[in-house]
Amino acid sequence: MRLLINKIVLGLSTLSALIGLAFLGWILVTLFIKGLGSFHFTLFLNDLINGGLRNLIIGQFILAGIAAAIGIPLGMVAGIYIQEYGRGKYAEVIRNLSDIMMSAPSIVIGAFVYAIIVVPTGGTSGFAGAIALAIMMLPIVINTTDNMLSLVPRELREAGIALGASKYKVIIDIVIKAAKVGIMTGILLAFARIIGETAPLLFTSETSNYFSLDLTESFPSLTVSIYDLANEPEQSSRDLAWAASFILTVLVLTINLAGRFFTRNKKS
């Protein structure tokens, strides 16, 4: 009897793992079939207005890139504060708030940026979109930096100080170097996450059918355009949405796997 229950439960949980994998497989296979079916090399050469995705892909990279350029240094320095300088309550409060902010609804961040940037400047802009993504990225980078620095043994810091280096020198030259791989991985995962975001961009950058590098105007976004295209009645628009989704997913998963591969290689 005990053995029977044991078998049943173990069977069920194996089954649920299979279900989980089946969903992953189903989604990926769908993406591959639909996405590759509509995929064509010329998608990279034309803008959306001509039925291509070039402007969208470049636009999404620019948005995420600017967000990273803002979010990574701020997040790292903030993470350094929490782990290296912060003593007592304040650092702990910041650590907790950043932890909570990591799971905050992305649409609310979109609404926030809408209120503080889009409304005062009179319209959606690439700049607003990048800020929204940067706000999303900030707590992830803080969290990674904080965690990775905490793994660096204290003796290493003490050894640096004992050689007469100042604290910030020790942090920059020794501690950060020791935690480099972990922080890089965390940053890659953070980048993979924000490059696939849609909700915070909906009413901050919106999207555009044309190629643009002007951050003060509505800015082309791959994800927002996927949402628009997928809801169009014409089959051709939906096909384009599938192709775009395929590209987006490949991109996100590649960055993700690259991050993991990176850590694994360094460890062994």
């Binding site: 949402y227 996100v252 998963l253």
Partner: peptide, 12 residues
Amino acid sequence: LLAAIPSIIFGM
């Protein structure tokens, strides 16, 4: 990885 797939893909 399933957790990393953008939510818009799940929607579509």
